[in-house]
Amino acid sequence: MDAARSRQGSLTKPPGSLGVLEEVSVRLAGIAGACPPPRPQRAVVAVFAADHGVVASGVTPWPQEVTTAMVENFRAGGAAVNVLAREAGADVVVVDIGVASDVKEDEVVWARKVRPGTADLSAGPAMTRAEAAAAVGTGIRVADDLVRRGYDVLATGDMGIGNTTASACLIAHLTGRPAAGITGRGTGIDDVMLAHKTAVVAAAVARVPAGADPLDVLAEVGGLEHAGLAGLVLGAAAHRVPVVLDGVIAGAAALVAQALAPAAVDHCFAGHRSVEPGHATALATLGLRPLVDLDLRLGEGSGAVLALPLVRSASAVLRDMATFDSAGIPT
Rank of each mutant, 00 (worst) to 15 (best):
236 A>H: 09
139 G>I: 07
325 D>N: 12
291 L>C: 11
149 R>K: 13
48 F>T: 00
60 T>R: 11
173 H>R: 01
46 A>P: 03
82 N>P: 06
179 A>M: 05
118 T>C: 03
187 T>M: 01
299 G>A: 01
207 R>V: 00
106 D>S: 09
250 A>S: 15
91 D>R: 14
245 L>H: 07
6 S>R: 12
121 L>F: 04
86 R>A: 13
224 L>E: 14
77 G>L: 15
325 D>E: 15
218 L>G: 04
283 L>Y: 11
47 V>M: 00
115 R>S: 14
12 T>R: 00
143 A>T: 01
91 D>L: 04
256 V>H: 13
236 A>D: 14
217 V>S: 09
117 G>W: 11
55 V>E: 15
23 E>G: 02
303 G>I: 08
164 T>S: 13
81 V>Y: 07
204 A>Y: 04
273 R>P: 01
282 A>K: 03
48 F>P: 02
277 P>E: 08
27 R>Y: 02
107 E>G: 15
151 Y>L: 13
14 P>G: 06
248 V>K: 05
145 D>M: 03
177 R>N: 03
187 T>D: 09
69 A>V: 12
302 S>P: 00
309 P>A: 06
2 D>G: 00
26 V>A: 11
93 V>G: 00
11 L>K: 00
18 L>Y: 06
187 T>K: 02
269 F>C: 08
298 L>S: 08
25 S>R: 04
275 V>P: 05
83 V>Y: 01
8 Q>A: 07
202 A>H: 00
42 R>E: 12
292 V>I: 11
284 A>T: 04
95 V>C: 13
315 S>H: 05
132 A>P: 10
226 H>F: 11
56 A>V: 09
274 S>G: 08
32 A>N: 05
93 V>I: 10
100 A>K: 15
213 D>G: 02
325 D>H: 14
205 V>E: 11
41 Q>Y: 05
297 R>C: 06
191 D>Q: 04
87 E>G: 12
9 G>K: 07
283 L>T: 12
65 E>L: 13
132 A>L: 10
81 V>R: 03
275 V>K: 11
167 S>P: 15
276 E>S: 01
316 A>D: 10
190 D>K: 01
295 D>Q: 10
57 S>A: 14
221 V>I: 14
51 D>A: 05
246 D>M: 01
257 A>F: 14
97 I>M: 08
4 A>Q: 03
78 G>Y: 14
117 G>E: 12
4 A>T: 05
81 V>S: 05
113 K>R: 15
